[in-house]
């Protein structure tokens, strides 16, 4: 079996449909923006290798569908997360009001043992819009984040690559801290009787 040991950070992005979750992920991972990303169905998944304070980590970012509130499927998506990013759209009041319920749902379904200390990061996206289209003020957002447990708050534009890097840097650091604080040995078993014929396959497989 593979002996590679790398730190994997699972980050999950939640928020209402159309707030820009996919755009944020694409901007962070590929450094590009497209006007049209298809509606996410279920979830998407992209990995990114990072170095945080000389430590090699792989961040696995899960971009979820914003329209549906999953029940049992949510458990499958959220399980093992190290950080949860809550996204709203500064031009959409409803998406802002729903932040709390996304957080609650995550905590329930991800089965977080210590909810008070689990790292969340809140992102208000689409700050590139004209001032008069903006419906949620920074002040209002900051006070909500404070009331939700002093959550770090960023205002971003996935379109113009504003603050995305910075937000995900905090996400990564908080996720790493969370991951390191966990005892993961009890979770690790490899009792499955599968033998991959590495020699004969490896010689021509890759």
């Amino acid at each position: 079996m593979s002996t590679r040991k790398k730190t994997i950070l699972k980050v999950i992005i939640l928020g209402d449909s159309g707030v820009g979750k996919t755009s944020l992920m694409q901007q962070f991972i590929n450094g590009k923006f497209s006007q049209q990303y298809k509606a996410t169905i279920g979830a998407d998944f992209l990995p990114k290798d990072l170095v945080i304070d000389d430590k090699q980590v792989t961040m696995q970012i899960w971009d979820t569908a914003g329209q549906e509130r999953f029940q049992s499927l949510g458990v499958a998506f959220y399980r093992g997360s190290d950080c949860c990013v809550l996204v709203y759209d500064v031009t959409n009041t409803k998406s802002f009001e729903n932040l709390q319920s996304w957080k609650d749902e995550f905590l329930i379904q991800a089965n977080i043992k210590d909810p008070d200390n689990f790292p969340f990061v809140v992102i208000g996206n689409k700050i590139d819009v004209e001032e008069n289209k903006r419906l949620v003020s920074s002040k209002k957002a900051q006070s909500l984040c404070a009331s939700m447990g002093n959550l770090p708050y960023f205002e971003t534009s996935a379109k113009e690559a504003v603050n995305v890097e910075q937000a995900f840097d905090v996400v990564a650091r908080n996720a790493l801290q969370q991951e390191e604080s966990l005892e993961f040995s009890d979770d690790y078993t490899d009792a499955v009787n599968i033998h991959v014929d590495g020699d004969s396959y490896g010689s021509c497989g890759c």
Partner: peptide, 26 residues
């Protein structure tokens, strides 16, 4: 089956949801 289910531990519903709902369009 064992590879996905027991070694990699990927729940099939995670990816099947899109495969099935969209009849493989994506």
């Amino acid at each position: 089956y064992h590879l996905l289910k027991n070694k990699l531990r990927i729940e099939s519903s995670i990816w099947l949801i899109r495969y099935l709902r969209l009849l493989l369009i994506r």
